[in-house]
Computed example of a mutant assay.
Amino acid sequence: MAILRSFGWKSLNQERIVLAIAIGLFVMAALALPGFLTTGNLVAILRSVSVLGILALGMAVVVIGRGIDLSMVAVMAMSVAWYLQMLGNGVADGTAFALVLAAVIGVGLVNGFLVAYAEVPAIFVTLASGSFVFGFVRSQLISQDAVPVPRGHWVETLGRLRLASVPPEVFLFAGLAFLAFLFLRFSRWGRFVYYAGDNPQAARNIGIPVRPMLMLRYVISALAALVAGLLTAASLQTINTRMVNSTLLYDIVLVAVIGGIGLSGGKGGVRNVLYGAALIGILLNAMTIIDIPLLYQNLIKSTILLAAIIFDGVINPRDEQTAQQGDI
């Protein structure tokens, strides 16, 4: 009986369930789908998981701190599009990158300031800022939806680089995941993220700089979006701003939520992002091989996201402080 109890329901949690489903889905796809285990397809899964995972890392830092960032995809697409547009117009690489980096950090600071000091709910702030970034950049700074990478540029070289047949985004994702793990688990500021997410008022009462920490989280999220955008441009040799209207944002939230990042704040970590990204990456790849129409793929993903949110609400109930905060 003791053995059964040790492997009973108490040993199960969302993280382990997601990992088990991901492994089971991988095995079933390997047995049932022709071409799934080919080197090219496995590399494609790793590549898609890496970019999605980098975005989900930024989202996780925000969500753990009891917030959400709906501007990530707009920042990702429009910052890189503006960067490539400036390069095409003859602007020096260093100048162009410095301008884009300053703009991305500025968006993160504005998001964080409005949420932390103006106390506007994060879902509205980031939805509005994402729409503004897309509209302003598309109408004022770039001339077309798809902006190509200039020939011979380092972004093009990055896209063609391979280390043991593995694209660089896989290694960058692994490195960023490790850095995020160190930040969240072993740094003082990382622990502040959990404290502020668990109970912002109590964290403020014991002297934790809750508002500056909140601004930092949105800056980290914006920088993660920039990195993901550069890797996407390197992979495709172009960046298409129409991705802002795609379901990528929902995929990011899906990875975080289904992996076990609690929407009520203060719960989760890098491991949850890894498991969630693995599950969604395998699922999307399998649906593509099966040739499920995009409409039905989106329906399946939205159903999974809704179920994950309901499940998160059951195991991580919203307390009074969460309701008052209004961050999500």
Rank of each mutant, 00 (worst) to 15 (best):
153 H>T: 11
310 I>P: 00
79 S>V: 09
117 Y>L: 10
168 P>M: 14
318 R>F: 15
38 T>V: 13
169 E>Q: 15
163 L>S: 06
299 L>R: 03
261 I>V: 08
245 N>Q: 14
57 L>K: 00
50 S>H: 04
147 V>R: 01
287 M>T: 12
236 L>Q: 09
162 R>N: 03
218 Y>E: 00
262 G>K: 05
281 G>P: 04
63 V>G: 03
259 G>L: 06
229 G>W: 02
306 L>W: 07
126 T>Y: 01
180 A>Y: 06
283 L>W: 07
89 N>G: 13
129 S>F: 06
203 A>L: 06
142 I>V: 14
248 L>C: 00
326 G>M: 10
238 T>G: 02
230 L>Y: 08
197 G>L: 13
258 I>C: 04
48 S>H: 10
123 I>D: 06
278 A>I: 12
260 G>D: 02
198 D>P: 05
28 M>V: 14
284 L>W: 09
190 G>V: 11
106 G>L: 12
302 S>A: 14
270 V>A: 06
85 Q>I: 02
169 E>I: 07
81 A>F: 02
282 I>R: 03
166 V>D: 00
209 P>K: 01
208 I>H: 04
118 A>T: 08
237 Q>H: 13
86 M>T: 06
137 V>Q: 12
151 R>A: 13
17 I>E: 05
314 V>N: 07
326 G>A: 13
311 F>E: 05
215 M>S: 12
166 V>R: 00
36 F>D: 15
91 V>W: 09
93 D>F: 11
291 D>A: 11
235 S>Q: 14
175 G>Q: 15
70 L>T: 07
62 V>L: 03
30 A>D: 03
282 I>M: 00
226 L>Y: 06
214 L>H: 04
179 L>M: 10
243 M>R: 08
210 V>S: 02
213 M>E: 14
97 F>I: 12
203 A>D: 01
162 R>W: 04
148 P>G: 10
220 I>A: 07
156 E>L: 04
302 S>I: 09
62 V>K: 03
322 T>A: 15
210 V>G: 01
289 I>L: 13
182 L>F: 11
162 R>V: 12
4 L>Q: 07
167 P>T: 01
291 D>G: 03
314 V>M: 15
200 P>W: 08
